[in-house]
Amino acid sequence: MKAPTVLTIILNYRTPDLTLKSAGAALRAMDGMPGEVLIVDNDSGDGSFARISAEAEARGWTAQGRLRVVDAGRNGGFGAGMNFGIRTGLSGGEAADFYYLLNSDAWPEPDAIRHLRDFLVTHPGAGLAGSFVEGEDGVPHRAAFRFPSIAGEFEMAARTGPVSRLLKSAIVAIPVPETETRVDWAAGASLMLRAEMLEQIGLFDETFFLYFEETDLCLRAARAGWDTYFLPQSKVIHLGSASTGMKDWPRTPSYWFESRRHYFAKNHGRPYAAAATLARVAGQAIWQMRRAVSGKPQADPDRFLRDLIFHDMRAGRQRPMRIPPFPVPHTVAKDKK
């Protein structure tokens, strides 16, 4: 029986050094496995494409036929860039059996990709599998989650022990599982997708520019009968927010609010989305009262609550979904020279 193929996709946006480090780690982890590594430049516009292409050629990666560098031609966000890579497929023109999505600031351990692939091979009901993620300091990152909900929004904003204990079953970020565990959704920093699942539910919804896209994909998969798993034996080092700058946001960008609202409105309806925002506002009010009493530091970017309400009020009608089908008429992307 022919071994299943894996296409590892790394999306670059103005992080060429990190992307090259990620690609090197991915190639080592892919050693002996049928498949390829594909670097997709998301229209960085800073010379990233030329630099990565030249460096990959100089290191002999492209000559071995194990790695290609392609230009998406536009920056449509994370989901659109990954969709471009999935549609590009393997260099022979065929689709892969599995697609491994890897952040440009993440580096898989030597057996990380193999663990994900082997698990999906032996668990035909699993559509997605995510990795254990930790920082360079060895501190584990939260990478396994429950789906967002009204109760979860309230708990997240309140940041108060009694509220969290009361709503513990709604807390979005769950403690890091120590064994293979079925979860609602897993972080897209290191996530493997089954092609058969994508054939059924389609690719990422490109309405999301950034954030909530993998949450939405896992929810669509779950509704179609596919499970998502977290595998602690698949280990990845992740810097976190290197290309988005989330850790240093002085103010939350518009696309985060738009993605959040689209997720709730699309999957649960506009009244539910409005209720989720009201729950967030109510939880935030509790947190602000705690801050006033205890002198706790600010925990959100500037004007977060004001921006949240503003974006919800001006949202208007629900945006149309943009979910490309899989498979699609295949056109192998041309490597720019």
Rank of each mutant, 00 (worst) to 15 (best):
A151I: 03
T160Y: 02
E196L: 05
Y99C: 07
R165Q: 04
G138A: 09
N103R: 11
Q200H: 08
E180K: 01
A173P: 15
S169F: 06
A173M: 06
A144Y: 05
F147W: 08
D184M: 02
L167S: 00
W185T: 03
V133N: 15
E153V: 03
Q200L: 06
I171K: 12
M192Q: 02
A170Q: 03
H141C: 14
A106Q: 01
I86A: 01
G127A: 00
R194H: 05
G138T: 13
A187T: 09
Y99I: 07
I86V: 15
S131K: 10
Y100S: 08
V121I: 07
A106T: 01
W107A: 10
G135S: 13
L116P: 05
V139D: 08
H141S: 13
P162R: 06
L167V: 08
A126Q: 13
E153I: 02
L101P: 15
H141Y: 14
E134W: 15
D137E: 15
E180M: 04
G127Y: 10
G127F: 06
L90G: 14
D111R: 11
A126M: 09
M156I: 14
P148H: 02
P124T: 12
M197A: 08
G125T: 01
L167Q: 00
R194Y: 03
I150S: 11
Q200I: 13
P175C: 14
Y100V: 01
A129Y: 06
G152C: 12
S91P: 10
E155W: 05
G125L: 01
E178I: 12
G138M: 09
F145A: 08
E153H: 04
S149H: 01
L191I: 15
M156K: 05
E155T: 05
H141I: 00
A189W: 11
W107Y: 13
L116I: 08
T122Q: 15
E153W: 14
S169L: 08
V172H: 11
R159T: 02
A173K: 15
